Computed example of a mutant assay.
Amino acid sequence: MITTFYARREHPPSAELARRTATVLAGWGHRVLCVERSALAGFLSDPATPVIARQDNGVEIIHGAAERVDLETLYTDRRLGDALEAWRADHAHRYDAVLIDCPHGTSDTAAICLAQLPDTVVAVSGDGSTDAELADILRRADAARDRMSYGLPQLTFVPILPPGTTSPTLTALADNWISREVSPAAALTALAFDARRHQPRLLAALLVRELDASRLLVQNPRLLVAGARKAELRREHALRGRIRDLLTKLTHSAQDWDAVRVLLGTLETGLRLGDWDTLDRALAALSVTHTRHNRPIPADVAARTVTLLDHL
């Protein structure tokens, strides 16, 4: 996933937050690339061959000297838009996370970092600008993205608020990734306090899971962090596949449906809590028959099975 870190005004903590998040992810075994703010002009001039200048704490970094670039010429004469899409596709496979330190303000370079390059924007508030100003810039970036001809998905926004504050304006921008089962204010409050730490582990864990963990963020943040290491994510992926295969077989095999209901309850609880140890034990202990049958699956079992499949 490609993530831009942005603040409306000059806000060094947004760059620091990007660097610290990258260090946490690399420490968990993920391959991470950081694009520094000073390197963006040179990078946009030739995104096909970016130079990985150095590694820092296991993070690969593109850096350079600040310079001016004619983006209109690059887009019209050198097809920069197509080159960036090729870069995005390539780096989605080469790295577990790409973090971009976006220039502040509303420059053309900032617009590209907000509208075309990322999947997610971490928007740092509390720099003296109003939340309305920041929200307006983010909405315009999303609208500009919609007008592009590359079929890009909707941006996701992760507002980082000052600890102890709320912002209905910015919270509303996060409604496409925060689960309806948790309070948006609680999710952003947890991130606000975490982001100011030396190691922003909750933010890193949330990003590496592509924001699909807001319930854990609020209900069990320790488990969210524990499961964000690369080895644990691989294990989780394998377990999800085993559960998916099991649920598919249940709909085609004669079963002890009372036992199946108990199993479904275990799976529902384990998935809700992210308790992969319990799920692993449940899968190891169960036995599923494979006798074909013509009798319909009980309606309650069918409904719960479909719900579980939708969450995998």
Results as ranks from 00 to 15, higher is better:
82 D>G: 06
5 F>D: 03
293 H>F: 07
166 T>C: 00
137 I>M: 09
297 I>M: 15
88 R>E: 03
15 A>E: 09
161 L>D: 11
218 V>W: 10
1 M>L: 00
309 L>V: 06
84 L>R: 02
247 L>Q: 10
146 D>V: 03
11 H>W: 12
302 A>Q: 13
114 L>I: 02
307 T>M: 07
74 L>T: 04
79 R>C: 02
23 T>F: 03
139 R>N: 04
217 L>G: 01
137 I>K: 12
149 S>G: 14
82 D>N: 04
93 H>E: 13
151 G>I: 03
12 P>N: 14
60 E>R: 12
266 T>Q: 13
177 W>N: 12
137 I>A: 12
62 I>P: 14
277 D>Y: 08
23 T>E: 10
244 R>S: 08
308 L>R: 04
153 P>N: 06
265 G>W: 02
305 T>A: 06
54 R>C: 07
62 I>H: 13
148 M>W: 03
102 C>F: 08
25 L>I: 05
294 N>M: 09
167 S>T: 06
298 P>N: 02
263 L>N: 05
155 L>P: 08
59 V>D: 08
253 S>L: 00
177 W>Q: 10
22 A>M: 07
6 Y>W: 13
129 S>I: 12
157 F>Y: 03
252 H>T: 11
34 C>V: 10
276 W>D: 03
166 T>G: 01
89 A>C: 07
87 W>Y: 12
134 L>I: 12
34 C>N: 08
142 D>P: 00
232 E>Y: 11
105 G>Q: 04
306 V>P: 00
300 D>K: 00
69 V>S: 04
140 R>E: 15
134 L>D: 10
178 I>K: 02
139 R>P: 01
185 A>G: 14
170 L>T: 02
201 R>P: 05
52 I>D: 03
79 R>L: 01
176 N>I: 07
282 A>N: 10
137 I>G: 08
199 Q>R: 13
206 L>K: 04
267 L>Y: 05
111 A>K: 14
28 W>Q: 15
193 F>W: 08
274 G>M: 05
29 G>H: 12
125 S>H: 12
94 R>P: 10
144 A>L: 15
154 Q>T: 13
287 S>I: 07
186 A>F: 00
16 E>N: 13
273 L>D: 12
106 T>N: 08
258 D>P: 14
257 W>Q: 05
304 R>L: 07
229 R>P: 13
206 L>V: 03
181 E>R: 13
50 P>M: 00
289 T>G: 08
175 D>L: 07
125 S>L: 12
285 A>W: 06
121 V>P: 05
95 Y>L: 01
